[in-house]
Design a protein around this nucleic acid. Structure first.
Lengths: 146, 146
DNA sequence: ATTACACCACTTTGTTCCACTTTCAACTAA
DNA sequence: TTAGTTGAAAGTGGAACAAAGTGGTGTAAT
């Protein structure tokens, strides 16, 4: 289970250190892809295979489905952690997520998320992200108990 | 599984470099054909056979189905990668997809797509490709979780 | 003879690998 | 409790290598 929040910095070549605790879980080879809310998603090989299987079932003839599959697959890349514990993020993904030097990696259960630090701070300061507001919204989704 | 986004340029002779990571998957001989949304599709020999099988199941009696099959089959050509890792795109397919010098190749699971760079940028800036819209569609496509 | 294409040689760019430094946190001993 | 020691993790820069990009030459078809 991926958890925690870690702050690291991109080096001049666009590489990022994978926090030691996450590395144990996610493995030496994993997949990153465009995510929602302006961050990147990172999946272990196993979680990715799972996701991929679902994508394969979508119809080519439906425009929404094509858009959806394109978004995640063309936005994906396989990453390998080097001997220094780093991995490369391709320039198009850096651009998509506005990554500057300071980056935040968070564990979110089945995936990690990679955020530009400032964007992460901003996201967390929005009023809709307060714990109370989140609890409020959950009721609408039918999640009444934990 | 074909994934990722790669930017390359057509040379003066209409040839295009196949990104090294895609080449491993798609093989030395593959098929390109007219695609949907203004790009070209490219299939490995194996995926092409697969695709053809599916086309065969469509009813010959239905005009839409006949149009659909004609569209893909009449536009198809076989490509071979040369010793420099490049392949030639015929002028009619270049014309169909408005390819200029700058080209984007994307991996979309079972196929690649070849886009004119500007058209790709434009496609990605459309409202329906925003992360919010993608998330919205997830539910409709039966993809409730990642 | 002209055109189109395959092949070859070379330059430039990008990626990977390796060695080194700095930082931080845990542990030990005064 | 504090200062010093040690080791792991994080961060940095350069060298070596592979991939991408380009231009020229030869050959075969028209």
């Amino acid at each position: 289970m991926l958890i925690g929040e870690y702050e690291h910095s991109l080096d001049a070549k666009g590489r990022l250190i994978m926090p030691a605790k996450i590395r144990e879980d996610i493995g030496d080879k994993f997949i990153i892809t465009k995510g929602l809310d302006g961050c990147l998603f990172g999946f272990s090989q196993k979680e990715w295979d799972n996701f991929q299987e679902k994508l394969k079932t979508l119809p080519l003839t439906n425009k929404n489905a094509r858009d959806f599959v394109r978004f995640f697959l063309s936005g994906a890349m396989e990453c390998e952690i080097d001997k220094q514990g780093r991995f490369l993020i391709s320039s198009n993904l850096r651009e998509y997520s506005d990554l500057n030097k300071e980056v935040v990696i968070t564990g979110v259960g089945t995936r990690i998320e990679i955020w530009d630090r400032d964007k992460w701070k901003k996201y967390n300061s929005e009023e809709n992200i307060s714990a109370d507001q989140i609890a409020e919204n959950m009721a609408n989704l039918g999640m009444l108990s934990i």
